[in-house]
Amino acid sequence: MAREKDYGNPSLEAKLKDRYYYSDDTNRDFTKEVEKIGRTIAHMCYQCGTCTGSCPSAPRSSYRIRLFMRRAVLGLEEEALTDPDLWLCTTCYSCTDRCPRDIAPTDVIMAMRNLAARRDIVPRNFLKTVQAIYTTGHGVPNNDVNRAARVKLGMDAEPPTTCGFPEYIEGIKAIIDHYGLKDRADKILSEGE
């Protein structure tokens, strides 16, 4: 966000170039994009901290939802999307229920994760879930111990989901392929090996 005015005072201008006073790596569009994807009015945040106070992840890590809200408001895209703490939100929605500004900080986090993922910044376990769903239709697929237990219960070894009706997996593949997500997941995961 470039400043359009100046003070006509060289020493003050120099001071304002200092990141402590002024940061020029903000992106106004980032705020708008977060608000669109997250379907929430992030810019209304007044930094009260109720969100961090409600957060189960905050007491045991450096993750601060209030900090991410500030980054959303200021358009600090790089800072927000490269911080690994982004992935410590359990999406419990306690902050959302308590926000006095009616914002959904949880959905701000989800939007930032979506934007990070577009740049291939995404933890491996998330992509492995995509691969599992692509192959079996399930994030947690069936296994032999479970099949035996199901039969003992008088049920079919395969539940009547995509497990029992694998012909439905084609539709799931078509949806994921529409977005090219499987190929991206494969590519990112193979790079990390």
Partner: peptide, 15 residues
């Protein structure tokens, strides 16, 4: 019949 993973809101929705 033929239902899949919901899909997992955290793991999938995050991407």
């Amino acid at each position: 019949c033929g239902a899949s993973c919901c899909p997992a809101p955290g793991a999938f929705g995050s991407i």
